[in-house]
Amino acid sequence: MSPSPLAALFSREIRVARRLGGGGTMGVIFFLILVTIVPFAIGPDLNLLSRIGPAILWIAALLATLLGLDRLFQADHEDGSLDLMLTSDTPLELVVLVKCLAHWVVTGLPLVIAAPLFGLMLALDPQALWTVTLSLLAGTPALALLGAIGAALTVTLRRGGLLMAILILPLAIPVLIFGVSAASASTSATTPFWPPFLILCALTLATLAAAPFAVAAALRHMSE
C-alpha cells in the first residue's frame, strides 16, 4: 500500500517543482535568453556563431543549472523536512541522490531537450547538434551533483546563492572542458569526439558515486 520511501520522495520532489511554477520552464527560458544575448554581444556573424556555438550552449547550461539550486536543500531546511529526513531509515546519501535526480529531471533534462533547437539558432550543423546534445546529456548530471555540494554547504544561509556559485564553479571546470571538447568535435578538425566524451562520462559517474557522500556529510554538519 505504501510506496518505497525513495519513490515517494521522487514523486514529492517532482510535484513540488511542478506546483511552484515549473523550475524547468524557467530554466529553459533563462537558457534561451543567454543564447539570445550572445549574438548581440559578439555580432550576428553565423560563421563565428557556429564555431563557438557549442561553447555558448555549454556556458548557458552551466549557468542555468545554478538556477534554483540554492533552494534544493534550503527549502527542506526551512520547513523542517530535512530534520525529519535525518530520522528516516533511508540513508541520507540516497535521499540526496534522489533529490538530485529529481532536480536534474526538472531543470537539466529540459535544457538537454531544448539544446538542439537553440543550436539551430546558432547555426550549428546537424552533426554538431548531436554532439552538443549528447555531451549535455552526459555532463549536466555532474553539474547538478557538484552544485548540490555547494547547495548543502550554504543550506543555512538565507542568501547563499552567490556564495554557492563561487564555491562550485571552479569544481565544474573539468566538466566544462571535456563537455565543450566533445561538443565541438564536429566544428573543429583537430578534436576527436570519443576521448573527451568518454572522459566526460567518467567524470559524471565518479561524481555520481562520490558527491552524495560529500553532500550528506555537509547537510549533517551544517544543519546542526
Partner: peptide, 29 residues
C-alpha cells in the same frame, strides 16, 4: 565557528579530490 569549520573542511576535502582532476583537464585543454 564550529559549523563554519566543518563546512570549510568538507569543501577543502572536495577540493583536494578535484585539484588533480582540474590539473589534468587544464593540461588537456
Amino acid at each position: 565557528p564550529g559549523r563554519a569549520a566543518r563546512g570549510a573542511a568538507i569543501l577543502t576535502l572536495v577540493g583536494v579530490v578535484n585539484l588533480p582532476i582540474i590539473k589534468f583537464s587544464v593540461d588537456w585543454w
